[in-house]
Amino acid sequence: MFTETQFGKSRRRAELLAKCVLGMMVASMIIPLFLIVGYLVKEAWPLLSLDFLFTNPTGGMRHGGIWSALLGTLYLVTLSLLIAAPIGVLAAVYLNEYARDSWFTRIINLAVVNLAGVPSIVHALFGLGAFVLFAGIGRSILAASLTLAIMTLPVIIASTKEALSAVPISFREACWNVGASRWQTIRGIVLPNSISGILTGVILQVSRAAGETAPIMFTGAVFFKKIEAGNIFAYSIWDQCMALSMHLFTITTQVTDAPRALPFATAVVLLGTVLIVNALSIGLRVYLRSRKKW
């Protein structure tokens, strides 16, 4: 009993090998991430300060801060989520809770999945055609936000549906059995228990909306626009605006003699914004998860 056998030895060797290989995969994923962030911060260091955030670019974008771009990105992201989140979440509730399984709903679901895979440049052209030209909104924050909303919508729908279907069907049946309507069931049981997943899905779209350049380039973002520094109400939704992703593209490719640290500092701000939002989303998830009731 309990003696070492040939089989036992080879099994332990296989176990060790599997652990090493899998661990190396994790390392190969994490190390580049830290290298990228570290490199960005190191190169950006001379310029990073609160001043950098709260002053406008000057001298043909060779000097100064990034206030107008930062504020533009905040406007675009917030407005696009305000449009996409309610529509996406409610549409997902309908698809998951009300729609019967038929060829029509299957086509809708297929369309949602496919729409999530459409390249952002295609969304950009659609936004240009539909909002800027056809609807006559013109190149503006509103048109760009609508375009970003169209882009994030399918992912919000998909992740919300995922969260809703994680609520056990037995809860719904129990509610229907006692004479509750579908909406009473959704409001009383389904939504309160899937809200953490829904919010996480929505918030994760912030990073996508903040990072995309193509959809806003055609529909509302400009190279340069001067606004009042430090005033968060400096844009109206009918204005065109600067945006971090677009600004980064401009100062790296169009402005040839910008100081080396400038694009890096812009990248750090963009990355930092996204990381902060993601951290908030994780915190929210942990908080709501801990209140989960089964």
Partner: peptide, 13 residues
């Protein structure tokens, strides 16, 4: 009609 399912279902309330 009161309906009791095979598996107990405590609602998350």
């Amino acid at each position: 009609i009161g309906m009791v399912a095979p598996l107990p279902v405590g609602l998350p309330l």
